[in-house]
Design a protein around this nucleic acid. Sequence first.
DNA 1: ATGGCTAGCA
Length: 647
Amino acid sequence: MLVPAKTLELKFAMSLIQQSTSLLQLFQLQSLLLKTSLNLNNFVTAKFLRKCLAFSPPKSLPYARALFDHVHAPDTFLYNTLIRAYLQSQNPIESLHLFRRMRLVDGASPDSFSLSLGIQACARSSEKGMGEVIHAHVVKLGFVSDLFIETALIEMYAKIGDIVLARKVFGLMPERDLVAYNVMLAEYVGCGEIGQARILFDEMPIKDLVSWNTMIHGYAKSGEVNSAREIFDRSREKDLVSWSSIISAYAQNKQCNEALRLFKGMQLGGIVPDKVTMVSVLSACADIGALGMGKTIHKFIEKNKIEIDVKLGTSLVDMYAKCGDIENSLQVFHGMDERDVLTWSSMIIGLASHGLGNDALRFFSKMIQEGIKPNDITFVGVLSACNHNGLVDEGRAHFNSMNNVYKISPKVEHYGCMVDLLGRAGHIKQARQLIEDMPFEPDAVVWRALLGSCRTYKNIEIAEEAINNLINLEPYVDGHYVLLSNIYAQANRWADVAEVRKLMRGANIQRIPGSSSIEIGNIVHEFVAGDNSHPRSDEIYKMLAEMIDRLKWAGYEPVTSLVLQDVDEQTKESALIQHSEKLAIAFGLLISVPKSTIRIVKNLRVCEDCHAAIKLISLVYERKLIVRDRNRFHHFADGKCSCGDYW
DNA sequence: ATGGCTAGCA
């Protein structure tokens, strides 16, 4: 026989491995390898591992690891294969364990591949000390001018927080290729040095699409959408990443309509969106409360068979919740086969914002049972759930458990929730004390929460303190002056009312205009107070007049004290009647299908007068209305609101 | 028989 049987077997096994198309096939192949003892061959095992890891790594990685652990003396190549697999997983620290083990346990010496992988592992797990040790090895072993290793070192020093040293490594490179430039660029972006990134970008001898896309993302991250757009427009070629980056730039910077416009432009340009694109598009829908558009995008995802991974699933959960459709939010949640802390947090926050505090707390317990570790955001949801249901003791217990059980330091927003919770329950002194005790400066949210309870429980002294702090923090918000004046008016302190008006005239107040929107047929219609820019404005005002008439018959009395301008009652009333939410609802009544739910999104807190009016609208017109304001949802039906009139 | 860079959620 000219060719030894073993060689034939080997060739045959290799081609079988090569040809397999699923993990299951590989699984079956493994028994063949065991029978022929080919599993003892590192060469074959490596091929097997690589093929295995080509399939979905969360499933195949543990399998590959088990296989690896049965190899008697893994060689450097085999180690490198597995180290790389862990590097791309959620668990880069395991790469480092293997890196150490290869030399100490199996005496396999790290080659240039291992070294660059080891350095990347340090970067991604912030192992500063180990990174420096490997760097020393690199110098000792003479790998100092290996492009891959040097590039890894740039990333490593940047990620451990030493961008200056990263730049030094970059500067000392005898030659720099495009990838080295791109990594340096990405690391400047990563640590927020967009100015340095731009200088480097302009200096680069050649740029590719990655360089342009890095800059688009960099500007987006720094909040400079217009610069991001400029780079996007200037780049001659645009790929999936370029489009996704610019869409995300607009979505993150609250220019959602432009984000949605670009999403259409991308498709016209022949670029097929993927799951990453969809996340940004959905977050734009969520932001403006465009439920119809969100549903359309959901259908698009299903029609185009875009994989719904944890992040995309979470975006859908979040979108539905923020668009007021908590049922669909729950449905997507239950349909997901993997959920992470963000998925659970989104669901908990969603439920809480809809006033379903008890459900939110049940979900939290389930999350803990399933072994998902909560983070600070989860607790924002948990505490606000307690808030909406007035669960003082439970809220306190969760707040204390943050430190004691989960080792999460409460941030200012958690204190804000607690102040709100205590205040709502009437424990105003305790709430005030908590502000005193918190380890940082209270922000506007905290004072606003305290103020809310002072209004309910008519505690003028603390209200004055809260509002003066608010005015200090946000001197330009007219609403604060209105509140203060109302409090004085309630207490018949008219001299103080006049004083506030004087104060207001002195301050440089830029009104944040209240605006409300309603989506009809995937188009979002936005209204500001007294708006007559809508093409159907005449009909809207006719409907509004009729609506107010019917409400008055049902007992509506405009709360004119909310209007601070020094004008007569009639003018005050007409100002109230033209509030943006009332205009949006009038439009909704005019144009929507009879009996359908009307969904309104407001940028600020819903005003007291509108809240009372909407309750009556739900009764008189027999409609459900779902209003999203700055903080939460109000579900109006049968003359009542889900918030129980405290918001 | 292997390797480095760009876009996503609360």
